[in-house]
Computed example of a mutant assay.
Amino acid sequence: MKYVVTNEWLANRLNDEQVRIIDCRYYMGDASRGLKEYIRGHIPGALYFDLEIDLSAPAGEHGGRHPLPNMDEFIEKLSTAGIDKQTIVVAYDSQASSMASRFWWMLRYLGHEQVYVLDGGYENWVEESYPVTTDVPLFPRKTFVANIQPQIVATVEDVREAMKNKTALLIDSREPKRYLGIEEPIDRVAGHIPSAKNYFWREGLTEDGHWKKSIEQEQRFADIPKDQAVIVYCGSGVTACPNVLALTEAGYTNVRLYVGSWSDWISYPENPIAAGKNE
């Protein structure tokens, strides 16, 4: 796969100064747990990036639960981490690559191509007896120069246009019960955006958290033409990112992320809501 690397691949590059490893572990409902786990042990050379603090801005009236952070501040954090355009970046987590995929997408949004997700995450790294450490590294500062890619972002207006005029296929990445409106454990309104199709993000990975091969991703999305414009969303713009990565691995090139996702959509009273199977 193009954007997924193996434990062996990373282990062979732990001493490569051009490789930077980012630990993205984060647990919804327990905001401090990911950092605590990082402190207890992480892949050698890894730096910690927090979903709420580093990869998101505070939630407001609109924009969803995890809006993008101030990009100047995020770029400064990347520079402080010793990342520039030559750096190869590998992200991992313990959440079936969902948080790591958010980081992967954000660097892609900033125009950085050499960014990857570690297959199997931290648990698999430990299970296969690769080294871990408690040392927190320091790296020389570099200058990260962004080249923003606005074409991979969808606004709420883009989603409304796609819903009304079929300018893009909408993909809802949440689990089926949330998509169908049967239950909604997080957001205040249940259901989905009208016309959206449900492709649960977790189905892009095996039960043990490994990414399915590119041919398997193609099979998942077989009913979507390769030239179809696609807009992907979830609850708050995090677990949609594994689907964006999976679509990319499957060969789709016109894929946008609706960062605000469902939590942004329902913040506008005028936006319609569907439930059950699509009409």
Rank of each mutant, 00 (worst) to 15 (best):
I148K: 12
G121W: 03
D187H: 02
R102W: 12
P140W: 07
G120D: 00
K85R: 14
D135F: 09
E123P: 09
N147T: 15
M163V: 01
M99F: 09
E183F: 07
L110D: 04
L138M: 10
L78R: 00
I148H: 11
Q114F: 06
L68T: 14
M71E: 06
A154W: 07
N70Y: 00
T87Y: 06
V90W: 02
F74A: 08
W104V: 02
V115W: 00
D84Y: 03
L68R: 14
Y130D: 02
D84V: 14
P131D: 08
R178H: 06
D119Q: 01
S97P: 04
P131M: 08
G111Q: 05
L180E: 10
V89T: 03
I152Q: 15
A154P: 07
S97V: 00
R160I: 11
K77L: 09
A96G: 10
W105V: 02
T155F: 13
I186L: 11
F103M: 11
V89A: 06
Q86C: 10
T167I: 13
Y122A: 10
V126K: 15
I171R: 14
Y109T: 00
S79V: 01
P140K: 07
R102P: 06
P140H: 07
V115T: 14
W104I: 03
D158A: 05
K85T: 15
T87S: 13
D119H: 02
E183G: 08
V156Q: 12
Y109S: 08
P140T: 07
Q86Y: 07
